[in-house]
Amino acid sequence: MQTEPWQSNKVVFAALGLPALLWLGVFFVLPLGFIFGLSFSDKSGIIGHDLTWTGGNYLRAFEPLYLGIFGKSLLVALAATAACLLVGYPVALAVAFAPPKIKMPLLLAITLPFWINILIRTYALIAVFRTRGFLNFTLEWFWNAGDSLLRAVGLGGLGDFAPLELLYTNTAVALGVAYVFLPFMILPLYASMERFDRSYLEASLDLGAGHWRTFFKVLLPLTMPGVISGVMIVFVPALGAFFIADMLGGADSQLIGNVIERQFLGANNWPFGAALSFLLMYLTFAAIVLRRLFAARAERADGGGYAPA
């Protein structure tokens, strides 16, 4: 049986649809429309704005000062995304190819941290990164072990351990972003691998390709939609994660999100902040479109035989 046309029961249709429609209209579309207008406005006085349809706020984002910040922000987000992919891909692969019995528990274990407050997860990293934190403790242990070993074989020591200054650096921000967004990367990767037909791998190996060749020529291309999805889902929110930079970063660790936040809560330049947040939004839409395109292409390429479950 098909869906029914809305005319068949207008009262029910309206009762079900109007509340959500009104809600989204008033509390979603209207606010977004507001700052869309704001992004084309001029500041007048201390708190006033005039809608002048100026493009100045957008142009300002391309001034050298901000280009520098954005460049660094993009680098940090890219590094974080790359780290997510490097860790996430093998994890997703291991889970997808795990025995069915432990698959669900593994997935649950990966998604569970996702539910823990993002701020708290970021905060938890402070204990890892600081000078007397776990990362340095672990490194020190290895260092000392190596030191004793070298002394024992008479090659002299490594000298004293110098702890890494990690906290309040861009490295900490990138690692923090990667840590916090990791589940977002793993889940789409897992989804693309789950429906991957294992006989392709067997066929490739059977035809004489080595493991690396099979990986690059068969597995990676066929799981590409998952890779693209994961990269998009991590990269754009990473640009906005201002609180991670605030908590783990130093004076010059700024993500686009920090600049936006400052325009609204500090510098009080709302039009510029609105323009920046719309740039971020356009980036999101571009990512969505790109993902759709890749998905469509992958589907076409599937053509015969490879039917996603």
Partner: peptide, 26 residues
């Protein structure tokens, strides 16, 4: 309608945050 429903999920939180900040301020 379907697409609009999923927009609040996909747009960056900070964008919705500042939009509502401006909206409520007004």
């Amino acid at each position: 309608a379907d697409g609009m429903m999923s927009l609040p999920i996909v747009i960056p939180e900070i964008c919705l945050g500042v939009a509502l900040l401006v909206f409520f301020n007004q």
